[in-house]
Design a protein around this nucleic acid. Sequence first.
DNA 1: CTGTTAGCGCATTCAA
DNA 2: TTGAATGCGCTAACAG
Lengths: 343, 343
Amino acid sequence: MQVMAVTLKDIAKKAQVTEQAVSMALRGHSRISKKTKQKIRKIAREMNYRPNLHARSLRRQSSKAVGFIFPDITYSYAQEIAEGARSQLNEHGYVGLIGLSSWNADQEMQELELMLGFQVEALICTPIVGSEATYAKAVDAGVPLVFAGNGLSIPGVACVGLDGYDAGQKVMRHLLALGHRRIAFMGTESMAGSQFLSPIREAYFHTMEQAGVPVQDHMVCYSQVGNQDSIESIVDQLIDLEQRPTAICCVTDAIAYLVMNRLIQREVRVPQDISVTGIGGLHSSSLEMISLTTVTEDAFRVGSLAAQSLLELMEEPDTEPDRRLVRGDLIARKSTAPPPQRR
Amino acid sequence: MQVMAVTLKDIAKKAQVTEQAVSMALRGHSRISKKTKQKIRKIAREMNYRPNLHARSLRRQSSKAVGFIFPDITYSYAQEIAEGARSQLNEHGYVGLIGLSSWNADQEMQELELMLGFQVEALICTPIVGSEATYAKAVDAGVPLVFAGNGLSIPGVACVGLDGYDAGQKVMRHLLALGHRRIAFMGTESMAGSQFLSPIREAYFHTMEQAGVPVQDHMVCYSQVGNQDSIESIVDQLIDLEQRPTAICCVTDAIAYLVMNRLIQREVRVPQDISVTGIGGLHSSSLEMISLTTVTEDAFRVGSLAAQSLLELMEEPDTEPDRRLVRGDLIARKSTAPPPQRR
DNA sequence: CTGTTAGCGCATTCAA
DNA sequence: TTGAATGCGCTAACAG
């Protein structure tokens, strides 16, 4: 059997006072004299007292907890977003619970249910593409919700993320300025529904148009999400073209890695033969071996902003949820260079 | 004001039955007739009922929750460990709560307190080096605890992780077989206390000795944890040696990345001039651009084993906590090659 | 200032 | 088979 946890009652008995006195003393209520407070605190410490958060939440009718749900932690900014948010939230006495969806819609739903079961007072989530609607449950339950990190959102839900259009424009202008004209676009199949990925695509078309460069349809590709083979076969097709692209603009860093990977396998040099760009700024992008030109987002700031949005929503539940886009910075590294000279 | 959550009482009123009947009906207790069960369930669904987990835990005196604490997610197998553990735990009706310590001992302590406050019935943690003792609190509280992933542990605490000695031996044998003799060792300052890192160091010395290769003291280096500058200056020293090493054996993949990074910056070719090895098997190691020779661990398996240990401990609290080491596999990639020929 | 009482939402114990 | 009472640990709202 597990050792029984020590409760207020236990302390009260030992200190010869009432349960309530202990409760107040421990929380520093002014009602208790300084002397007894110290005495009670000492005993509590000795007995290794730890408040039961379930009982507290139940009684207070408020959990003082916010939930985070991320798809996966390895390929996202979960860590920084959580830290950014925590820096704000802790000041207001909130604690954070983290759930992982593992890129799985069912799992995501379960985690959400769990969070709601724990009566979280707010949620900061990075939904997986296509599952945004899952979060209608949270909205129904009246729990303030903010989407953070990937620019995904649904109507009526606040959102903080990288400005996809701006980011797309930045990489495209960079490539055009280097002299590229045959620029391929590497998106994902389900991007149409994404309020983050779609704008990147728009930026691609607009920027090309503004530069007076015609877009060739077969240069616009959509890979299956998370499917390495799919990316490889697309890359193969692109480099086998009569007029192969001189640059490939990828919608995420992770995709860009796989594209570079395939190019090198096929003995295409990056950037001498083909330049590659990403968006998102995974940390490893800065490594000399990868050195990917990308647009980074300040994930800590995204987290802070998300928390701010949340605090506003909690205070003024009728506030219109807003969409805050943060602009990233272009980091030009060694995966981009002027296109090869025509022979 | 937040919308009041719907409770058993609300459903009971609507369904014209008692609160208890609803409770049992929803949990499928045989006491309630099939017909009323269906009726009650329908109403509950319509009303969007969701049990209050705090109340449930309080009443049951068991939270059916296990806590996970990871330092950071980017540089660890948190995801896979969590998934592996979850695959076991879910079957037994447990849910998981995740906390992130951000490589910060204070933060780690806070997360632990939070988990204990939530009455988790078990903990799976990847402690940061040097903070293992923090978890004495959990042991005191009688909460079964397993350390997972990095081989760190303290007496009396179960542990599942990569077999450091075996891994070290594997990379060293690989390097020796390639013909290397001047092999540098790149550890970290605080590794002495680590039951994972120390064995790697031992393996380095033993394997060298067995091969009859004398270890040169200035080839054995210890960088500051997470300090890139520190690694770079050590690398600089190594390559400026009269007799520079032909290979560098790093205790983690993350360190190996930074070492390779510096080598390339200094225009030392990997692997033609110097071979580099890691241990741990970060996912990005397989990328063509990085292609690091390393020893991988099966993190999902680590998670499963950790969960198994836990389940045993929960059933038989007096079981002697054991230390389970999983052996990794050497993955020879392009960061290692025979040493350059003597001129 | 102190002490008492009540009850958060749920599940388990009784008694009917 | 059903209903009613009880209490988990904590805190808030009382009355003294």
